[in-house]
Design a protein around this nucleic acid. Structure first.
Lengths: 226, 226
DNA sequence: AGGCTTCGTCACCCAATCGTAACGCGTTCG
DNA sequence: CGAACGCGTTACGATTGGGTGACGAAGCCT
């Protein structure tokens, strides 16, 4: 599966150049011309890397960078800043804001690729086999056994946590009650299927607003929607 | 404790400039003027970072870099390469050889500091995690086999200490009783899982106020929280 | 050998958690 | 249009999981 890179720049030529080179190198590329579009795409696509120009109309690169860092969904996406000014203050700000690297324009495509490759190589191994699930403001951390909503922890019992996890891991696909009993309660369960309902209810109660992710499919079972 | 940086360059002026700025920033600095000296000091002092000029008499920066990477004692020390040539090939080589970053001369002291700080910030927490753990007023010293609370020593038995250590090293992640039995008691243990409970109790008793770090996750296991 | 520490196991107890039954409401279907 | 059905909701008894105290065995030191 290709890694996705979001390129943010208001100059079409610059975007084109960068996009071409990144595609050539085998990456999937999205683009955005302004801050609003950048934030929207960053959030919806959660790319593996963002190449971000500092000079943008309305919201500049620093603003975008800050905002991205504040949102749990994009806080960990590495960012490479592009700046036309060689002025050092820009660089400092760029790095201290949480950017992972920067390039001063004009830069060679080769140098860009080098930086991109390096950053991705560093962060790739961190993508531990789905140890952490994120859906908007909802976060589920398997090893920590913690679920949070808007960074606030949700108190869940062991079964509730497992139920939520199973549903979230199969996001989009409907799970029948029998299926859930097998996966959450471990097969062999001679348990009433209505038990699932009760636990779903308790789960919904506890996760509050996040309950919107939990869909009931009448006559079939339950489904986690993103 | 200050972090040590080894600066390798054959031009005394360059060394002086870099050394001054790094000291100013609070780092301990060693210097070397050629490859042989660099390798020797790198091995004997195992600095936290090496700033390495490419252009050196006899053995050049690339050679040194390769050699450092081959030696287990220095394989993981981050390296920042300095190059006077803007030629890209140098950069590529520098990064592909395992250098962690590079700077082209002339560079500003501020930019160097920025890079240094960034690299150290990335690798520092990994190193610390090995010898000494700190969580607020609680300190665990692995090599000394000592734990303290507000600088006052806590008397712990061998198993208690190991249990605490394992939990602290995996801070945040829940450890099941079986997991703990395997890691603390060494696998093969035909020990009752309830034994873990007892030791947890004794541990909590002894560490007193620090017990707030030890969380019970009902139905799952135990977790060390920061 | 004797006293002390450390360790593993057991038994007891309480509270959190779980499974089930019962009730009620909206939906579906004959 | 009404009965059957499916699911949410509430309530409650049963179970489980883990804290706690106690005890014997093994190791360690003097």
């Amino acid at each position: 599966m290709k890694q996705r890179i979001l390129v943010v720049d208001d100059e079409p030529e610059a975007v084109e150049l960068v996009e071409f080179n990144l595609r050539q190198a085998g990456y999937a590329v999205s683009t955005a011309a302004d801050g609003a579009e950048a934030l929207k795409k960053a959030r919806s696509q959660t790319p593996d890397l963002i190449v971000l120009d500092v000079m943008l109309p309305e919201m500049d690169g620093f603003e975008i960078c800050k905002t991205l860092r504040l949102d749990a969904a994009t806080a960990n996406v590495p960012i490479i800043m592009l700046t036309a000014k060689a002025a050092e203050i820009d660089r400092v700000l760029g790095l201290e804001l949480g950017a992972d690297d920067y390039l001063t324009k004009p830069f060679s495509p080769r140098e860009l690729l080098l930086r991109v490759k390096k950053i991705l190589a560093r962060s790739a191994p961190q993508e531990k086999a789905k140890e952490q699930l994120r859906f908007g403001d909802l976060m589920i951390d398997l090893p920590r056994h913690i679920a949070t909503w808007k960074n606030k922890p949700i108190e869940l019992t062991a079964t509730e946590f497992k139920l939520l996890t199973i549903l979230a891991q199969r996001a989009g696909r409907v799970q029948s009650r029998d299926q859930l009993l097998r996966d959450v309660w471990e097969y062999d369960s001679v348990i009433d299927t209505r038990t699932v309902d009760t636990h779903m209810r308790r789960l919904r109660e506890k996760i509050g607003a996040a309950a919107k992710h939990l869909d009931t499919v009448r006559g079939v079972g339950y489904r986690f929607v993103e």
